[in-house]
Write a protein that binds this DNA or RNA. Structure first.
Length: 620
RNA sequence: GCCACUGUAGCUCAGCGGUAGAGCGGCUGAUUCGUAAUCAGCAGAUCAGGGGUUCAAAUCCCUUCAGUGGCUCCA
């Protein structure tokens, strides 16, 4: 139940129009004015059903507490469903508010109640002293069905008091308290650390990737949607598709089975709702007839439910399910949104690995760690590493942590929690520092020791008994959108240093631009474009060569080839790279060079017309 | 969500109580050009939306929306 208390000079309300669940009232009660009262906007929620007595008790307790503080005996109970995103059945709410009215009267208050189930207009004058506006939430803890389940709400409430300490672990195996560590040789790690502990975040100005994604016609805001939902132009969509394909192919090679599950789930589903109620109001709601659905914020839901129904033997383990959540939805607070770094709808390759036991979980954790290292290299982004452990678990597995640090070959951050409040005992994160000194996580893997049991996922072991597996939550690329953010931010940093920006060759929307010296050579270029195994386009516009070069450079095109009489005669192509350096290649040499650059990466054709004169402008 | 800043042509910006401007881009024409900008002409604005103050509002005030930053948050 959610409550909003307002100490008012007066309140007037008028019942205008009935809803289906309206209670009957006489005409003379339609309009009301109450002087100097404590108004309680009251919202009955789904979870209050079945705990009526306890809700009433706590309601009165809150009411007494606040009326005491503001020194009033006059109460106005105002049923107001709009405080909640998961209202109860209307019939239940109606009965409950009537009950509340009676019980509050019994406590000796002077009570007025606005009618239930009417559209009402109201005027309220709030007093505006410090205590005059208070909100309260009544949450009834479910009856204990198992000790494990109760840890979830604790996780939320205690998160703030959660005690942890940061350390730095070097590849040599020295674990130093981060406060005492000398970061002078590890500036990037220092930036990451400061960001993590929430100090020194004086970043200013616009994040450069936003401007770049617009200028390069990759991605843009969509004013017609909700904040944090973006439109992807053909060039941006190409990059997205390639990132998605590359991660899918990596995971397929690793042995993951790709699946797809719904984007929305029933709010009232017993297990899911239990899980959800712990994360207040962070999801999009979809109302369909009488039912409420929420949009998934990760692939966990669909994969838990799939795992429940599967018959799994120890022989199948480790078992990996992979899904590209296109999209995951999180209704972040408006102030938390930031370009491609923090979105409300994003695409995330999400993998869950079921493991037999801890040794197997550690082995897979390590393999996924290595995959993540490879991913970061493939998108050529520098990153810092953080390990987060429950303290006891860390000291039981110190060798494992050291092995992780050694693989990276530079100092990494380690956060140790005194106790386990979350569902996982350890995780790693690969984070990037951006132009403004903010930090964002890409790759991450967590070892989950709780949810397999909570969701009834089990396997049959060699001795014939049913057991719950350990569960790894993995995203190798993190969010795809965020990968692009990381790439663009890194290029912005390069440009600031006076270097030229360039996308990784395999991700470039145009890899080769052919520039015919005059229109006479357009046809030759077209022929050449067919020959080259890359995304090749042709600047056939009626412009001078210098102009075409300039425009191609502004688009960050990796290879520029000017084609005229000379080339036609000699068969040699003057290949201009981003460095500005021009080298002659034969067609075969260039083909070979391109093939080598693309080896190991997925390929997609051009997503725009080959001839520049045929292309619309998506943005300035 | 709270606080602050921002919003003028497709883009970048000027104008900051008195007739909405420029450059780039676009379109049309000329030009057939050799490694970062060829020339000329034309079109293009609900000054983010709504309300108010004023003889008069892009300009001042209120409000809504959107963007960014900080706080909070990031399952």
């Amino acid at each position: 139940m959610r409550l909003l208390f307002i100490h008012s000079d007066f309140m007037e309300f008028e019942s205008k129009k009935k809803t289906k669940f309206a209670e009957e009232l006489k005409d003379d009660t339609k309009k009301h004015r109450v002087e100097e009262a404590l108004v309680i906007f009251t919202s009955v929620e789904k979870q209050d059903e079945g705990s009526k007595e306890e809700v009433v008790r706590q309601y009165i307790e809150n009411l007494k507490d606040i009326s005491d503080q503001v020194q009033t005996n006059r109460i106005l109970i105002y049923p107001y469903v709009h405080l909640t995103s998961s209202p109860s059945r209307p019939e239940f709410a109606r009965d409950l508010v009537i009950e509340l009215e009676n019980r509050v009267k019994e406590e000796g208050f002077e009570v007025t109640r606005a009618p239930f189930g009417w559209y009402k207009s109201f005027i309220i004058s709030a007093k505006g002293h410090p205590l005059s506006e208070l909100s309260r939430e009544i949450r009834i803890e479910e009856e204990i069905e198992g000790e494990e389940e109760e840890k979830f709400p604790e996780a939320l409430t205690k998160e703030k008091e959660l005690h942890s300490t940061w350390y730095v672990l070097t590849p040599e195996g020295d674990l130093t308290n981060a406060k005492e560590f000398d970061f002078s040789d590890n500036q990037e790690l220092a930036t990451f650390y400061k960001y993590e502990i929430g100090k020194d975040r004086a970043s200013k100005g616009d994040p450069p990737h936003v401007k770049l994604m617009q200028e390069l016609e990759l991605v843009d805001y969509e004013p017609g949607s909700d904040s944090g939902n973006f439109r992807w132009y053909p060039k941006g969509y190409l990059i997205k598709k390639l990132l998605e394909r590359h991660s899918a192919e990596m995971l397929r090679e690793y042995g993951a089975m790709q699946v797809e599950t719904p984007v929305m789930y029933d709010f009232a589903h017993p297990q899911l709702s239990k899980y959800l109620n712990r994360f207040p109001a962070r999801q999009y709601l979809v109302k369909s007839d009488e039912k409420n659905y929420f949009l998934r914020f990760a692939a966990c839901f669909g994969q838990y439910l799939m795992g429940q129904d599967m018959t799994i033997s120890y022989k199948h383990l480790p078992l990996k399910l992979y899904e590209l959540t296109h999209y995951s939805f999180r209704r972040e607070q408006s102030g938390e949104l930031s370009g491609l770094r923090r979105l409300r709808a994003f695409t995330m390759p999400d993998m869950h690995t079921l493991c037999k036991d801890l040794p197997q979980a550690k082995l897979e954790f390590m393999r996924q760690y290595e995959l993540s290292m490879r991913w970061m290299k493939d998108i050529s982004v520098d990153y810092e590493v953080a390990l987060r452990f429950v303290k006891d678990f860390y000291f039981e597995n110190e060798d494992f942590a050291l092995e992780l640090a050694k693989k990276i070959g530079k100092p990494i951050l380690v956060e140790l929690w005194e106790e386990r409040f979350f569902y996982f005992i350890m995780k790693f994160e690969f984070s990037v520092n951006d132009f403004l000194g903010n930090s964002a996580t890409l790759s991450t893997v967590q070892i989950d020791v709780e949810n397999a049991e909570l969701f009834g996922i089990s396997y049959v072991d060699s001795d014939g008994t049913k057991k719950h597996p350990l569960l790894l939550h993995t995203s190798i690329p993190g969010a795809i959108d965020r990968d692009l953010y990381a790439i663009l931010e890194r290029e912005a940093i390069k440009m600031k240093k006076g270097e030229k920006a360039e996308l990784p060759f395999w991700l470039s929307p145009t890899q080769v631009r052919l520039i015919p010296v005059t229109e006479e050579f357009i046809e030759d270029c077209d022929y050449l474009a067919n020959e080259l195994p890359a995304r090749v386009d042709i600047d056939d516009r009626d412009e001078k060569v210098g102009r075409k070069i300039r425009d191609a450079e502004k688009e960050w095109i990796n290879i520029i080839v000017v084609f005229g009489q000379k080339e036609k005669e000699s068969g040699k192509l003057p290949v201009r790279l981003r460095s500005g350096e021009i080298t002659d290649f034969t067609v075969d040499e260039l083909k070979k060079e391109i093939k080598q650059k693309l080896s190991g990466y997925p390929f997609e054709g051009l997503t725009l017309p080959r001839l520049l004169s045929k292309r619309p402008i998506f943005r300035g």
